[in-house]
């Protein structure tokens, strides 16, 4: 280990400081009578922004799996869903359908993270040895199985209605709608920034170099004495746990979970965000995700100025999203800010 390895990474520390600052300001809004005014024009920005910071945790976890370790997980939404459902079922006070156990929400959130991590462990124990494209298929199939289980076991998971009556810790202490939105985006955004700091630390450490070595050439990595299966399993479980955390926070922000929130569309969105920004670069994947989520804003504004129906506009947006994915892979396989040499896509 050289001296360079022990230096603190500047970026990670900045993200940590910013994250803690966001949490403190968010906490200030939530716990004191301090109020914020939100112009109605900005309302939609904050709403999409909250979804963005939640998906941000998903894309950071996915980048740890694919960008750094090369694991093609195409069912990332399942860990998000399992975290959200576990949290919701444990914390819900009185749901219309499905399970509502009424435990305190911090415990429920913890169980949500653990449940997602355990599922990640099971999936990786069984499938991590599969070739890349088959791992993609198995994870995708896992997500579809869980989706239909959530829809079909109405007694436990509430069917298409999902679980209602999940406590909303921030809404519980802030009455005013504007302040609540601001506090929510600051608190969840702060957690996302702290996540960014944590994964930056992890991947800039020698540990991260091993992960990238596995991505570049697994056989060489194994031949220098690294147990690649252990590293791959760990990276997979970390990503799953992060998705579980995002799911739990989503349940506690939204107050309800339903299968409609956890479709393959979520997986596709974060994959395109990651590839567009540039895999294996934490800030780039967040920026790529921001561009893709920005399209949602465009389609919302476009909807109000054009005379077409919402369904037509949604279809049009998805055509554009699909073409962006094709174009990125064809013309810029390393993404906008990615390093082609490191990703091994130099042509």
């Amino acid at each position: 280990m050289s001296a360079l390895d022990r230096l603190p990474s500047g970026r990670g520390d900045r993200a940590l400081i910013a994250g803690v600052a966001c949490l403190l300001v968010g906490g200030l809004f939530a716990l004191t009578p301090l109020q914020a005014q939100l112009p109605s024009a900005l309302y939609v920005f904050v709403e999409v922004g909250i979804t963005f910071v939640i998906y941000g945790m998903l894309v950071l976890g996915l980048d740890l799996q694919y960008g750094h370790t090369g694991l093609v997980n195409f069912g990332h939404v399942v860990f998000f869903a399992v975290g959200a459902y576990a949290t919701a079922m444990l914390a819900a006070q009185d749901s219309f359908a499905g399970t509502a156990l009424g435990y305190p929400w911090p415990l429920a959130l913890l169980v949500g993270v653990v449940a997602a991590a355990l599922l990640g462990l099971v999936v990786s124990a069984t499938s991590i040895r599969l070739r890349d494209d088959f791992l993609a298929i198995v994870t995708l199939a896992t997500a579809e199985i869980f989706h239909s289980v959530f829809v079909n076991f109405e007694g436990v998971f509430g069917g298409n209605v999902g679980i209602l009556g999940v406590p909303r810790p921030i809404a519980g202490v802030v009455g005013d709608a504007d302040t609540r939105m601001i506090a929510t985006i600051l608190v969840i955004g702060g957690i996302t920034l702290i996540t960014l700091a944590a994964v930056t630390r992890l991947t800039e450490a020698p540990y991260g170099r091993v992960l990238r070595a596995i991505r570049a050439d697994e056989l060489v990595t194994r031949s220098v004495g690294k147990s690649t299966i252990v590293y791959k399993t760990q990276a997979f479980v970390y990503g799953a746990a992060l998705a579980g955390l995002a799911g739990g926070l989503f349940a506690l922000y939204n107050g309800a979970v339903a299968p409609g929130f956890f479709t393959i569309q979520v997986t596709v969105t974060i994959w395109i965000g990651m590839l567009l920004g540039g895999a294996a670069n934490h800030r780039a994947v967040l920026a790529g995700l921001a561009i893709i989520m920005g399209l949602r804003l465009v389609s919302r504004f476009g909807l109000s100025v054009t005379p077409v129906s919402g369904d037509v506009f949604a279809a049009f947006r998805l055509v554009v999203v699909g073409l962006i994915l094709i174009a990125v892979i064809r013309f810029r396989p390393a993404g906008i800010w990615g390093d082609p040499q490191e990703l091994g896509v130099d042509q």
């Binding site: 998805l318 699909g322 962006i324």
Partner: peptide
Amino acid sequence: GLGIAIRN
């Protein structure tokens, strides 16, 4: 990506 584009 192509599947999403064609389907929609």
